[in-house]
């Protein structure tokens, strides 16, 4: 089990934070382009899910799985989007994302008055805490290399 990388997007699609821990494959495009591609894909998936769903969706899109990795998605009612790529065996990633939102983002970005909203997060403390939370989680620890 392992965590690959993390994207945090604002309501308008600005990449607030990107972090990676264990990434073998580079996509071959710049980080900025990649984040735009990622946001565009998520946006499309959201509308795709809304249309194809047989019943009224509440939370909507939760995750998708490919042969090598799983992309977990959490969107808050304010439109903040958390995207975490892990391997396929990881469990309870949703709770980890909730924690990331309530224990790290809220505490170190929202409660930090000099952290502007809707702009990439500069705070070193925040970056440190994200790293700490991820490395603490059992998903990260149990990685088999």
């Amino acid at each position: 089990m392992t965590i690959h990388n993390l994207y945090i997007f604002s309501r308008t699609g600005v990449l607030l934070h990107y972090a990676e821990w264990n990434r073998q494959n580079k996509s071959g495009i710049t980080n900025e382009e990649e984040s735009k591609l990622m946001y565009g894909m998520l946006f499309s998936i959201k509308s795709f899910v809304n249309k194809i769903s047989p019943l009224d969706p509440k939370e909507g899109f939760l995750y998708y799985k490919t042969s090598k990795y799983t992309l977990h998605y959490l969107e808050t009612p304010t439109g903040l989007k958390f995207v975490l790529n892990t391997d396929n065996q990881s469990q309870n990633v949703r709770e980890l994302l909730q924690q990331l939102y309530s224990q790290v983002y809220l505490e170190y970005v929202v409660k930090n008055p000099i952290c502007p909203m809707n702009e990439p997060i500069q705070s070193e403390l925040f970056k440190l805490k994200v790293d700490e939370l991820m490395k603490k989680s059992p998903i990260f620890l149990n990685r088999s290399l």
Binding site: H4, N5, E20, N22, R23, Q24, N25, S27, E34, L37, M38, G40, M41, I45, V49, I52, S53, P54, L55, D56, P57, K58, E59, G60, F61, L62, Y63, Y64, K65, T66, S67, K68, Y69, L71, N85, D87
Partner: peptide, 24 residues
């Protein structure tokens, strides 16, 4: 795009997509 944005090399596209009301 799912296979292009993969953190691991040689990855397939989406195999399972889950939302709260269905799974594809």
């Amino acid at each position: 795009i799912a296979s292009q944005l993969s953190p691991e090399p040689r990855c397939s596209g989406i195999e399972i997509l889950e939302a709260d009301t269905f799974r594809l």
